[in-house]
Amino acid sequence: MFAIAASTITDWGLYILLPIFITFLFFIMWDISKKSEAGHAGTFWIFLALGAGSVGFLIKLLMEVAFEKWFI
């Protein structure tokens, strides 16, 4: 059979599938702001509120790469 390690599946999900999902969520936020006619300020707040978790995830990924490259 095809044996794939659990860590491989986790890595694929974390580093490939999750960023694709986050990109799709940003598209959804853009669509929500356009359909609700939120304007510039409303669009800003939609992206700030809903995008904060995604940005935090991306910062975490960058920090992991930096720590692995320079400190370990």
Results as ranks from 00 to 15, higher is better:
Trp70Pro: 01
Ala66Trp: 08
Phe71Ala: 07
Leu58Lys: 12
Phe21Lys: 03
Phe2Gln: 10
Ala6Gln: 11
Trp70Glu: 08
Phe57Met: 00
Ser7Phe: 07
Leu58Trp: 10
Lys34Gln: 15
Ala49Val: 09
Ile59Gln: 13
Gly56Tyr: 02
Ile46Ala: 06
Leu14Val: 04
Glu68Lys: 13
Trp12Glu: 15
Ala6Thr: 08
Lys60Val: 10
Lys34Leu: 14
Ala6His: 06
Phe27Ala: 04
Phe27Asn: 02
Ile4His: 00
Glu68Ile: 03
Phe47Gly: 01
Leu48Ala: 14
Gly56Lys: 01
Phe57Val: 00
Met63His: 13
Lys34Ser: 15
Gly56Met: 04
Gly13His: 01
His40Pro: 07
His40Phe: 15
Glu37Lys: 10
Thr43Glu: 06
Ile72Ser: 11
Gly51Trp: 01
Lys69Cys: 01
Tyr15Arg: 14
Ile72Glu: 10
Glu64Leu: 08
Gly42Asp: 09
Phe26Met: 15
Leu61Gln: 09
Lys60Tyr: 15
Lys69Glu: 10
Lys35Pro: 00
Leu25Met: 10
Thr43Ser: 11
Leu58Arg: 10
Ile46Gln: 03
Ile59Gly: 12
Ala52His: 10
Trp45Gln: 12
Phe27Met: 03
Phe44Thr: 13
Ala52Pro: 03
Ile72Met: 11
Leu50Glu: 02
Thr43Val: 01
His40Asn: 13
Gly56Phe: 04
Leu17Phe: 12
Trp30Thr: 07
Ser36Trp: 09
Leu62Gln: 07
Ile4Tyr: 03
Gly53Met: 08
Gly53Thr: 08
Gly51Gln: 02
Ser36Pro: 05
Glu68Met: 08
Ile20Leu: 10
Leu62Tyr: 06
Gly51Phe: 02
Lys35Arg: 09
Asp31Ile: 06
Pro19Tyr: 03
Ala5Val: 00
Leu17Gly: 05
Glu64Val: 02
Leu25Ile: 08
Ser33Glu: 01
Ala3Cys: 04
Lys35Trp: 03
Phe71Val: 05
Ser36Met: 15
Ile22Gln: 04
Phe44Glu: 13
Leu50His: 03
His40Cys: 09
Met1Ser: 10
Ser54Glu: 04
Asp11His: 08
Gly13Thr: 01
Phe2Asp: 08
Ala52Leu: 13
Gly53Ser: 10
Trp12Pro: 06
Ile16Pro: 03
Leu61Asn: 11
Lys34Asp: 14
Phe44Ser: 13
Met29Leu: 11
Ile4Asp: 00
Ser33Phe: 02
Gly56Val: 02
Leu18Gln: 05
Trp45Lys: 14
Phe57Ala: 01
Gly56Asp: 01
Lys34Gly: 08
Thr23Lys: 13
Gly39Trp: 10
Ala38Cys: 05
Phe67Pro: 00
Phe67Ser: 13
Ile32Phe: 09
Gly13Asp: 01
Phe26Trp: 15
Lys34His: 13
